[in-house]
């Protein structure tokens, strides 16, 4: 079964390396991984989709949390949560069949965002299954290129994943969030 795990991590060099290395080393089978910033400076948010049984998801959560730079881990699988994915799909589209494609897009609430005489670029934000179904429908026209972001997720309602994390944060923990960046600009050359 698929598990959606959300991790809040320090936004600093090497974090992605640590996490990727952990997945590889422990043999976790990752379906998708989406990383981005949050509204809190210094915190990145990762959404990880992993294939495996309960036990594997449990280990993934614990091993992730063991990393010093991982602040919080939450399994969204059995939670009331919204999950979305964005895809850009470039399909072959002639002036003859363009209308037909646009009709399909309407059904899936997708949009055409670029156009040429022989192609269309389509954008869709939806649940993974919806995107898969759209792709199914488009394949007969000929897909030229496709890119997907991987799943992102958020709890429904007022509660958030970030609450307590922000509470913990004070001046003394700022140091850890900032250390490790190579400064910009040239250093005086040191000859050995």
């Amino acid at each position: 079964m698929k598990h959606t795990v959300v991790a809040l991590v320090e936004d600093k060099p090497g974090v992605l390396n640590r996490i990727a290395s952990l997945f590889r080393r422990r043999g976790f089978n990752i379906d998708s991984l989406a990383v981005g910033t949050t509204h809190e400076e210094g915190i990145s948010r990762m959404t990880i989709v992993i294939e495996g049984n309960e036990n594997i998801a449990d280990q993934l959560e614990k091993q992730l949390f063991k990393l010093i730079d991982v602040i919080k881990v939450e399994n969204f699988t059995n939670q009331n949560a919204i999950t979305r994915e964005l895809a850009l799909i470039k399909v072959k589209a002639s002036t003859q069949n363009r209308r037909e494609i646009l009709d399909i897009l309407e059904v899936f609430r997708a949009q055409a965002i670029d156009l040429s005489t022989a192609s269309l670029v389509i954008q869709i934000v939806a649940h993974k299954d919806t995107i898969d179904a759209l792709i199914d429908n488009l394949s007969r026209f000929g897909i030229l290129e496709m890119v997907r972001t991987g799943r992102i997720a958020m709890r429904r309602g007022y509660t958030t994943t970030t609450d307590e994390v922000i509470e913990y944060f004070d001046d003394s923990s700022k140091f850890h969030s900032q250390i490790g960046r190579l400064s910009n600009g040239d250093f005086p050359f040191v000859s050995d």
Binding site: P13, G14, N17, R18, S21, L22, R25, L67, I68, D69, F175, I179, G180, R181, L182, S183
Partner: peptide, 19 residues
């Protein structure tokens, strides 16, 4: 990285003591 509990690259002498 995969052999330690945690590690650091210090890029500024001011960071040394806190690190």
């Amino acid at each position: 990285m995969p052999t330690v509990k945690h590690n650091y690259l210090v890029t500024n002498a001011n960071d040394l003591a806190p690190t």
